[in-house]
Design a protein around this nucleic acid. Structure first.
Lengths: 258, 258
DNA sequence: CCCGACTGATTTGTCAGACAACATTATAAA
DNA sequence: TTTATAATGTTGTCTGACAAATCAGTCGGG
């Protein structure tokens, strides 16, 4: 056991990072158990011979890594459910890149639909139908219905009763938001497209409702294939405007529930 | 005393988090382009009407999220490849949980095999065959061949020529390593299983080599189905030993290359 | 004209101390 | 015993300062 009561961090690298590593190690090895409270910032600073600022930066890293949570007035605690992070580059909004995302989405949603057909609870089926109705409603009002569309697909993922699907789909859908918007705002083709989309959605829901997994998977696969086709129909100039619409829109993407 | 020159952060939440969100938004929307230098900490503090400490905490979050890098004496810069993180709880090693992972893996690999059949380059096909040979070799020597097996599946993902697949598959495979090991170390059934596995792998590679996408997808689907079945055959006591083997390993996840 | 060393200003990293906001615990009152 | 109140502890934020590294410009010599 390494009793580093006074371990002067080796010079060269960032102090905060070294401390963060030591704390991370302590958590990973189970030396500090989930739910346990960390020593106070003052204590840690004294122990490592550093100022409170550095301790705070180090803890900030752990917080960001999902390893601890801090409560003002109380202390910092090892997270109950330690997490790992998949970090990847933000996809550029080119057509090629968006299509790559659609391919992944297809992989996930086809299987999600299949699982949903096997496992959906009655309430999940109800939510699916509500989500579909929401799309109609939004379109009738004149909105693009993109948010409602994404909620619909999220409902399918939820009905699969496999949290991994919802996590990954949610993660990637952020980057598809603008692409879908472009397809929807393609004025000339909009009505035709919307009719198609609604029809395809209906097929998926019907299959899930009947518990026909192969039909559900097929319907989902067709839907995503057609989605790619519809995207390709969008004029190039619309696609290029992706970035502009992105910067002008107040996308509160980080507004996740607590 | 607080002179809110620009946007007064709404009270209630952490100041640093609010600022971090604004900056994150600016980067995500491309308002600040990769490589560009951020305003100095002092400037940002003045602009948002907050102290430098808070600015530093906010920037620290961005740094941890991989969105910016800081150079002492120079400034903070938007990372050349801005990243986003998918964070999720570390799956427990229960049979139920592992099967959930296999479901996701099936979704991904079926589609990856389909894409690989369409797009694999000759060199990728060669690598696939080498990976398959490596498995045989490892098994003949007496090793479990788990690492080689995972490399094989990674080669399929790479042959899909869609980086999203490799990223997600890599990410989740970490948690499947032990589960696969368990299946392989099931002494009584090992030989039968390995023969099956090799046969199934061969079917996938053949389909990919011939460019038959439907056959490749089917073969991959069958392989993953059988994998789940094989896992279920493993005695319960073996599955329970998963946790021990898992906790004894030094997971150095923070050691990413620079 | 070009180039290198030097100087000074700028900027992030760290330190130190203080107060505010909130949480927890101990204490007193009913 | 239960409830209000005070005291204490802890994180969040503010302020000011210095160290260390970078950067821009100046100057002198080739």
């Amino acid at each position: 056991m390494i009793t580093n009561h006074e371990t002067p961090p080796t010079r060269g690298v960032q102090l905060s990072e070294q401390v963060a590593r030591q704390l991370t190690h302590a958590i990973h090895t189970g030396e500090m158990r989930p739910g346990e409270r960390l020593p106070t910032e003052a204590t840690l600073g004294e122990r490592y011979g550093i100022s409170r600022s550095v301790v705070r930066e180090a803890i900030s890293m752990l917080r960001n890594a999902g390893l601890v949570t801090s409560r003002r007035g109380s202390g910092s605690y090892v997270a109950e459910v330690p997490t790992v992070a998949l970090r990847l580059a933000i996809p550029d909004p080119s057509l090629q890149s968006v299509i790559r995302l659609l391919e992944l989405r297809r992989a996930l949603e086809v299987e999600a639909a299949r699982l949903a057909a096997q496992r959906r609870t009655p309430s999940q089926l109800r939510r699916l139908r509500n989500a579909m109705a929401d799309i109609d409603e939004a379109v009738e009002v004149g909105a693009d219905g993109v948010d409602q569309d994404m909620a619909f697909h999220r409902a399918i993922a939820e009905a699969s009763n496999n949290t991994h699907f919802t996590a990954v789909i949610d993660f990637y859908n952020r980057f598809l938001h603008h692409a879908i918007t472009v397809t929807r705002t393609n004025e000339s083709l909009r009505e035709t497209f919307m009719a198609q989309v609604i029809e395809e959605h209906q097929a998926i829901v019907d299959a899930i409702a009947q518990g026909d997994e192969d039909a559900a998977a097929q319907a989902a696969g067709r839907h995503l294939e057609h989605a790619e086709w519809r995207l390709r129909q969008a004029p190039v100039d619309l696609l290029e405007r992706l970035e502009d619409t992105a910067s002008s829109e107040p996308t509160n993407d980080t507004g996740d529930a607590r």
